[in-house]
Design a protein around this nucleic acid. Structure first.
Length: 649
RNA sequence: GCUGUUAUAGCUCAGUGGUAGAGCACUUCCUUGGUAAGGAAGAGGUCCGGGGUUCAAGUCCCCGUAACAGCUCCA
């Protein structure tokens, strides 16, 4: 007998060789029906794998991410099985489960797999799933594995095998389909009841652009048809929050082919939104001890040679502009740090002055590959809420933590509670990509790791994601359909102070090298606003709304009264107020204001004019009843005060 | 940059090789109104650009441009 410990701590006894499925069956048949895989002593395995020793078991169902992963992993095999049946001679790359569904990378030879094929593949997958094929795990010596794929003349699987040690090779058989695979899988194919092939796109073999491009077929499957319907419906709903769509609908920004791709044009409403965000942050940064600076949009080539950016990105930048006579070369600035370092270097500094924090809403230009451009989230001209903190090495951790706190403050006020944090380190196997000494890197990386640990932050760590001059702590949020974007970043840099020969005079009357922290909280105004649009669906908090108040006169007889009200509000506050003077009925004006997502409508007609009042209507709430202008202003300002917490530096 | 898809009025989109369409928006007129679309009339087109096939191209083919999805990249 073996002892099985369940997550609630209960211990049960089973005959040796029992499986997780047996455990599930002993609890309830319903549970057994829902079990997709199991976590046995922390390792995820098939639910029917025999257990020989005492173990901890967690049964995994559709409610567990790992359960879904097993389900979708099997679905990927099912996809491959269907493709192999329908398109003889296809070769397979890799086919993992992903966050939402799965894909398989396929070499179709000369065949162009397209959307027209989707329905056929879906039908075949469902047909195969219904056969209730068991997923049979097989361990195999490497020699045998190689022979199998040589017989199949499958170059991709053979290449994958090269990287595997003998004795670790496992295969899974599903019907007539056999794949090199580490598993785990669901017990058989029958739970797969709904299938959707979602898209097809190119993907480089082994994620290397020098390799051949395979065809990546994406799909998603569910245990219930209604789950698929719900998923597709939710996806359609999410697409309505796309910032590119809302940007046009709310008249925020545009692109023009004549201006150039990736160069956003901010319309008045968008510019107002942007300005509100800048004002908010400028005020907080000033309180946090930042000094705002302003630097030009270009800089001489030599500046970027000094910083190291020229060697790294010179060829992949917008190419230099030249002066007509002297033929000097100037680059559009791709980042603000070199300019800020020059401000630092403009005069000598004492240790008593540090930390020095230069902030700038600095507009930069980067040549992004054409295929990368994406609405406002990836553009070629954008404004960073950039700042550089010059501090003594002994101040580094404290300063880093202050920035972390600032990020938390700003995001919480903007409703971004779901952000993720990632520590981006250098790739230990590819160190020539980076500048600086091991000592510098170790100091910088440990500063970030210690600081995040000190705050108890949940971070993920990624090697190879660092900037070439230093490691980073990145803050990421998801867009409407779940894609992750980096917004904030905090970077520790020992390199740039070296390159620019930055100094300060220490208490020992010797010169010392400061450490630099590069940081941006929004990242770029463009990307941040894009994500703000998607997270709010265009219903911005009152204090950010580009048009917070619109006065709606009942008829043109009350336009003059509306003007009086507008002036009263604008005199008492610095708010933007508009009047809808169109020759339309009030219900129409209300509808249009609702559609335009205007937070406050002020309805004025005969009654209001007679009583010297306004009738506010809050978007989404309806009529608030008549009140005086003074009462409305109090009400309005109260809502803003309630929305922003006080920042204490 | 790579693979694929798409491009028709300001927006959303129909359009079968044979006279360019709808809804919304816009303009004018009527209407002067009370909490989510009042009525009528009008104007608006390089069918993305260039080339080709054809008696005839918005429609078929090629090249380019841009957008979209994904890959790769991201100071």
């Amino acid at each position: 007998m073996i002892k099985v410990t369940l997550p609630d701590g209960s211990v049960r006894q089973y005959p040796k060789g029992s499986s997780s499925m047996d455990v599930a069956l002993s609890i309830s048949e319903g549970l057994a029906r829902n079990v997709l895989a199991a976590k046995v002593n922390g390792q995820i395995v098939e639910a029917n794998r025999a257990i020989e020793t005492d173990v901890n078991i967690q049964l995994l169902t559709w409610n567990d991410d790992d359960g879904k992963a097993a389900f979708w992993h099997t679905s990927a095999h099912l996809l491959a099985y269907a493709l192999e049946t329908l398109y003889p001679n296809v070769k397979f790359g890799t086919g993992p489960a992903i966050e939402r569904g799965f894909y398989y990378d396929v070499d179709f030879g000369d065949y162009k797999f397209s959307e027209a094929d989707f329905a056929k593949v879906e039908a075949k997958m469902l047909e195969l799933a219904r056969q209730k094929y068991p997923n049979v795990r097989k361990e195999m010596p490497k020699k045998e594995a190689v022979a199998f794929f040589e017989a199949k003349s499958d170059p991709y699987k053979l290449e994958l095998l090269e990287g595997l040690a003998d004795g670790t090779i496992t295969f899974y058989e599903t019907g007539n389909y056999t794949d090199l695979c580490a598993g785990p899988h669901i017990v058989d194919t029958s739970p797969i009841k709904a299938v959707k092939i979602t898209s097809v796109a190119g993907a480089y073999w082994r994620a290397n652009e020098k390799n051949k491009m395979l065809t990546r077929v994406y799909g998603i499957t569910f245990p219930k048809k209604s789950d698929l319907d719900d998923y597709l419906l939710a996806f359609e709903e999410a697409k309505k929050r796309d910032h590119r769509k809302l940007g046009r609908e709310l008249d925020l920004f545009y692109f023009s082919e004549s201006v150039g791709m990736g160069l956003p044009l901010w319309a008045p409403k968008g510019a107002a939104l942007r300005e509100n965000l800048i004002q908010f942050l400028r005020k907080i940064q000033t309180r946090a001890g930042y000094q705002h600076v302003s630097t030009p949009h270009i800089g001489k080539k030599e500046l970027y040679i000094t910083s190291g950016h020229y060697a790294k990105y010179g060829q992949d930048s917008f190419q230099p502009i030249h002066t007509p006579e002297e033929n000097e070369e100037f680059f559009l600035k791709p980042m603000n740090c070199p300019h800020h370092c020059e401000i630092y270097n403009a005069k000598p500094h004492s240790y008593k002055e540090l930390p020095i924090k230069y902030a700038e809403f600095g507009t930069v230009y980067r040549y992004e590959q054409s295929g990368e451009l994406h609405g406002l989230t990836r553009v070629r001209g954008f404004t960073q809420d950039d700042a550089h903190i010059y501090c003594r090495p002994d101040q580094l951790k404290a300063e880093f933590l202050k920035v972390v706190d600032l990020v938390n403050f700003v995001y919480s006020n903007l409703g971004f509670s779901e952000f993720q944090t990632q520590i981006s380190l250098r790739d230990p196997h590819n160190q020539e990509k980076y500048l600086g000494t091991d000592e510098m890197w170790n100091m910088a990386e440990s500063a970030i790791i210690e600081a995040t640990r000190e705050r108890g932050m949940k971070t993920t760590t990624k090697e190879g994601e660092a900037a070439f001059y230093g490691p980073k702590l990145d803050f990421m949020v998801r867009d409407a359909i779940g894609r992750k974007w980096q917004i904030g970043t905090i970077q520790v840099d020992y390199m740039m102070p070296e390159n620019f020969d930055l100094k300060y005079m220490g208490s020992d009357n010797e010169t010392h090298r400061p450490v630099m922290i590069h940081r941006a909280l929004f990242g770029s105004m463009e990307r941040f606003i894009a994500l703000l649009i998607e997270s709010t669906g265009g219903n911005f908090p009152l204090w950010l709304a580009p048009e917070p108040i619109r006065i709606l006169p009942i008829s043109d007889k009350y336009n003059d009264y509306a003007q009086t009200i507008m002036r009263q509000i604008m005199d008492a506050t610095d708010l933007v107020v508009d009047i809808d003077e169109r020759d339309e009925k009030i219900s129409r004006k209300i509808r249009d204001a609702e559609v335009n997502k205007i937070p406050y409508m002020l309805i004025v007609g005969e009654k209001e004019q007679a009583e010297g009042k306004v009738s506010p209507r809050r978007k989404g709430q309806g009529d608030l009843g008549g009140m005086s202008v003074a009462d409305f202003i109090t009400h309005f300002q109260g809502e803003i005060k309630g929305a922003i917490t006080q920042f204490n530096a």
